[in-house]
Design a protein around this nucleic acid. Structure first.
Lengths: 209, 209
DNA sequence: GTCTATAGAACGATAGAC
DNA sequence: GTCTATCGTTCTATAGAC
């Protein structure tokens, strides 16, 4: 097979480092060093550090969006009114499945997503594209039909909860509570736990006002 | 009243900027400029940028920990086996209540907490103290009694879900899905929505294996 | 397409006057 | 306790050789 080109190696290195140290915490020099390329390569291939970040984010987010979209299409092909549990699985599932190979059980990608979400830099606004918004609106409408009686505001709160759990909950940010109780962020188990957790959460009756 | 001293003004400015731009994204110069102090003031009062961050985190996390601890004490004083809903409220409630005045509905503090959680810098390990771990273990034990049949691993996953939702879900990271549907991160409503959401999630039956 | 070399600015930290 | 001034480093971005 052909050896990976410099551009891809930079993307890989940048994804790794941005996820691990954040956008501001990662220097172009560190990226090019890890990629085995020269300092000027980032400027040549991407124009700037910010545009490199945008390219990294696009590469990570696009397959997730596509899978979420396809999952919803498939669901609607079966029934016009999918139940909450299936909507949760179609929405949250790709966040576990569509992780690039080599990722440590998705923890690295999750960390990158959290980096995107929590970085209020003005550059971050352009990191996610319009496709993401469109998918979100489709799920919002589907959840609204499956959960009548829920105010739009509370529904929106709950949808954000899905991403919060799938992204943040898989970080290894905590020290272990007790020795021997590992946080198995990786694997099929976390995926199933998340679906259980989120289906119950989404299905809760509307909050009494 | 006496005008706030330089040290406190630096703490305030640092809390604001660390929350908004992250640790690496905030420079000592920006902090001292916002605080109306000199560049050297950080070095004098805190020693270094990292130690300043530790002080900021301590000031934010300590009242939350204390309130979580007191809430659990109070709960145990009433009954030896508190139900899930009350445990959730005692644990998640302080994350909404114990926010310093001037915070925009807790969004700024939430952002700071996410910054702490998602920053894998080795410095971040010392940002949270042992008190936090102790509180967490007490709640873990209480939840374990309220939720028999749940494996320790899944319980731990769910507990992390609580913080994920209370912290991340309140960020204004998303663009609004539809005009007119604001994200009211502030106020009593978000607090009640979170309790509803999380009580249902925690109470879910164990995931079938 | 990839390199070396460097410009120009911003960084954290500190020495020393007051 | 707060300041000015500055040291040495590191940063992004780019010009120009190959």
């Amino acid at each position: 097979m052909a050896t990976t080109d410099t551009r891809t190696q930079i993307l890989d290195a940048a994804e790794h480092l941005f996820a691990e140290h954040g956008y501001s915490g990662t220097s172009v020099r560190a990226i090019t060093k890890l990629a085995g390329a020269n300092v000027a390569a980032v400027g040549y291939h991407f124009g700037s550090k910010a545009e490199l970040m945008a390219a990294v984010v696009r590469r990570v987010v696009e397959p997730i969006n596509a899978a979420q979209c396809a999952g919803l299409d498939e669901l609607f092909a079966r029934t016009p009114d999918p139940p909450v549990s299936e909507l949760v699985e179609a929405f949250a599932g790709p966040l576990f499945d569509e992780m690039p190979a080599g990722d440590e059980g998705g923890a690295r990608t999750s960390r990158l997503i959290v980096t995107i979400l929590s970085d209020p830099a003005e550059e971050a606004r352009s990191w996610t594209g319009p496709a993401e918004i469109s998918v979100r609106e489709r799920y919002l409408a589907a959840f609204a039909r499956a959960l009548p009686g829920l105010s739009p505001e509370e529904l929106w709160f709950r949808m954000r909860g899905i991403l919060a759990v799938t992204a943040v909950d898989r970080l290894e940010v905590y020290q272990q509570p007790t020795p021997g109780c590992v946080s198995p962020v990786a694997g099929e188990a976390a995926r199933r736990w998340a679906i259980t957790f989120l289906t119950a959460a989404m299905s809760a009756p509307p909050t009494r006002t």
